[in-house]
Amino acid sequence: MVLFVVFALIAIVAAVGVIISRRPIYSALFLLLNFASLAALYIMLQAQFLAAVQVIVYGGAIVVLFLFVVMLLGGGELNDIRDTNRPFLQRFGWQRFVAVGLGVLMVAGLGYGLVTGELSAVQGDPAAFGQGSVQAIGSVLYTDYLLPFELASVLLLVGMIGAVVLARPPE
């Protein structure tokens, strides 16, 4: 329990570090620290499979790509964002309010789940976590949650096609 709190605090501090870091590369590294402490939290919840996948996907692939991009762009220090990047921020007028609204919605949803106990119900469920977690997750994913699972893959495909379209040279 003590360790859980420690890792949760590390995760929060790292998440704050992502936002307030001046250098993009430190932001990416704080993100890595955040993902790593989340993986530690998963292990303490007996969800070893989730922890391993967290490290493989987020730690091993996504943050590496972030670092790759940051290095390609130079990775210099961000100047005072309020002065030099004002035109950039002005392009996001209404989007900022939408983002705040969505964030509030997410916090409300999480809070609702925690208060009603629907989110904490699976804690300690031997079928979902523990020794057989890989088998349990696999069988649930390919039976009960097959449609959301396939939809998620379609979503990823859309992302890939979008990236190809954006990166294509103009004709």
């Binding site: 070893q48 499979f49 730690g59 692939a61 590496v64 670092l67």
Partner: peptide
Amino acid sequence: DVNIGFLWVLAVASVGVYGVILGGW
């Protein structure tokens, strides 16, 4: 003897690249 030994190998191997990337940068 963890029951995700296989994934452990993949996870640790994929994290190993950070030393090289950060050292170079």
